[in-house]
């Protein structure tokens, strides 16, 4: 088989192939080297962990598909986590607290979309500003302190299971299925990919570019908000410094899973697989007693490698 055939074969494999293969190999290696890896406790712990980063990654994916980005998700998760905790500790019921908090998340997404789509500011800049602003709000709203005194039902949700599967993981699956349906089977999804691929072509075909931009950023902030609420449930407190640097992991998960930072490409399955890969790496590092600082270095290098490969593929496509 010559190089061209091999290249053609790689082209035909689904984009998620690499990340899934890599993750499975990592699982096999960890099962062999870390006796505590393939235990019920560890697996269900990992399932709870991955849910939160997975949900954020799915949201960020939507902005990456339209050739945007959302750097504010970590701060939004913390900000909205603090809001929901404040509301709950002041005695508002769970439905009202969660509802109002999700509304705040939608508002944040709308502001990001307006900055990008109406004012024409690059998404990188708008959401980098958001990263700082919402972390600041999280600190202001909480007075810099952790917020506790939450009703026990909050804690129960993240500890609970359904048919043996942690509730948090089920939540992520539901989110994944809904967003996958949206991206792969509806016009909205088709238009998001079209905009990321060639926004001018999309505009000429009469696609409402701003409305689609709004949907992408509201999904991103909304899912970050949901993740923030789930994080509060998992920790039973809200801390203004939680979810720190989650945006990087989320972007990395989407990109490792086949999303292109140039837009037009990426899948929910890939983003979730990417999130599972990073959770596994973190978990393995702990079990093998590897210095957690090395884990950061490895993650960073993996992101650089994947973005380099993405770049290479884009260049080849345009015949350079």
């Amino acid at each position: 088989m010559n190089n061209d055939n091999l290249g053609a074969l790689f082209q035909r494999l689904p984009v998620e192939t690499y990340v899934v293969t890599f993750t499975v190999i990592l699982w096999i290696m960890l099962s062999a080297t870390a006796p505590n890896f393939m235990t019920v406790d560890n697996i269900s712990n990992m399932m709870r962990q991955v849910s939160i980063s997975g949900i954020i990654a799915i949201g960020v994916l939507c902005t990456i598909i339209i050739a945007g980005i959302d750097l504010s998700v970590g701060s939004v998760a913390a900000f909205c986590g603090v809001i929901v905790a404040q509301l709950l500790s002041h005695g508002y019921g769970i439905p009202i607290s969660v509802g109002l908090t999700l509304l705040a998340g939608v508002l944040v997404g709308s502001i990001n979309a307006a900055g990008v789509g109406k004012l024409g500011i690059p998404a990188f800049v708008v959401t980098l500003a958001g990263l700082q602003v919402y972390r600041g709000f999280a600190l202001l709203v909480s007075g810099g302190m952790t917020v506790g005194g939450l009703p026990p039902q909050i804690k129960d949700f993240s500890r609970g299971t359904l048919l043996g599967i942690p509730n948090l993981f089920t939540t992520m699956l539901v989110v994944a299925i809904i967003v996958h349906y949206l991206l792969s089977y509806t016009r909205t999804g088709r238009y998001l990919y079209a905009i990321g691929s060639n926004s001018e072509a999309a505009r000429r075909q009469g696609i409402p570019v701003f409305r689609m931009t709004l949907i992408a950023y509201v999904l991103s902030s909304g899912l970050a908000t949901l993740a923030g609420i789930l994080l509060v449930s998992r920790l039973s407190i809200a801390s203004p410094s939680m979810a720190n640097a989650y945006e990087l992991q989320a972007i990395a998960a989407a990109v490792v899973g086949g999303a292109s930072l140039f837009g037009g490409r990426g899948t929910v399955l890939g983003a979730v697989a990417g999130a599972i890969l990073f959770t596994t790496m973190g978990n393995g590092a702990v079990l093998l007693n590897i210095d957690p600082f090395w884990e950061m270095v490895l993650e960073g290098l993996l992101i650089a490698l994947v973005v380099y490969l993405d770049n290479l593929q884009k260049k080849r496509q345009s015949g350079l």
């Binding site: 079209a194 072509a201 999309a202």
Partner: peptide, 8 residues
């Protein structure tokens, strides 16, 4: 320049 979306 053909106004096609490459990724579709």
């Amino acid at each position: 320049d053909l106004a096609l979306a490459d990724d579709l």
